[in-house]
């Protein structure tokens, strides 16, 4: 079955944030799944096979960096997925860290929703270009 709408996994321990992101992205036609912690994110990652993961860095338990590293190592899904970190990082060191974990892009917190969609779109476009 061909899946037309790209699926996105939103990972954020703050339920309100996650809901806001989910509703907004859904209104843009994406299929959204939400996880509230790292373990849940990893389980959903395998079941929903998202095209893109929006990953909050600061979470209790496994943080976003660790989740990102584990997702990247996934034998089947790790290569293709785009991973966008949602974080307050704005200095060189954090970005370097993000590169090291295998992230593709990041959104700086606090962000406005159009910026978020812009980031999602450019990453999905890149994924598309890479695949073809």
């Amino acid at each position: 079955m061909a899946q037309q709408k790209p699926s996105i996994l939103v990972v954020d321990d703050n339920q309100d944030n996650a809901e806001i992101i989910r509703q907004y992205l859904e209104s843009k036609g994406y299929l959204i799944s939400v996880a509230h912690n790292g373990d849940e994110a990893l389980r959903l990652f395998e079941t929903v096979k998202p095209a893109l993961v929006l990953l909050d860095v600061m979470m209790p338990g496994r943080d976003g960096w660790e989740v990102c590293r584990i997702m990247r190592q996934h034998p089947a899904l790790g290569r293709g997925v785009r991973i966008v970190m949602v974080t307050a990082l704005d200095d060189w060191q954090d970005k370097r860290e993000a590169l090291q974990t295998g992230a593709d892009d990041y959104v700086e917190k606090p962000f406005d929703l159009p910026t978020l969609v812009g980031t999602v779109e450019r990453n999905l476009a890149m994924q598309h270009a890479k695949a073809s």
């Binding site: 899946q3 037309q4 299929l31 799944s33 389980r43 959903l44 395998e46 079941t47 929903v48």
Partner: peptide, 20 residues
């Protein structure tokens, strides 16, 4: 999900729920 929804979305929700 919000009704009405297309079957792909519903399938995705079912997958998501069972994964979660």
């Amino acid at each position: 999900y919000r009704c009405p929804a297309v079957s792909e979305e519903i399938a995705q929700r079912i997958r998501g729920a069972t994964g979660r």
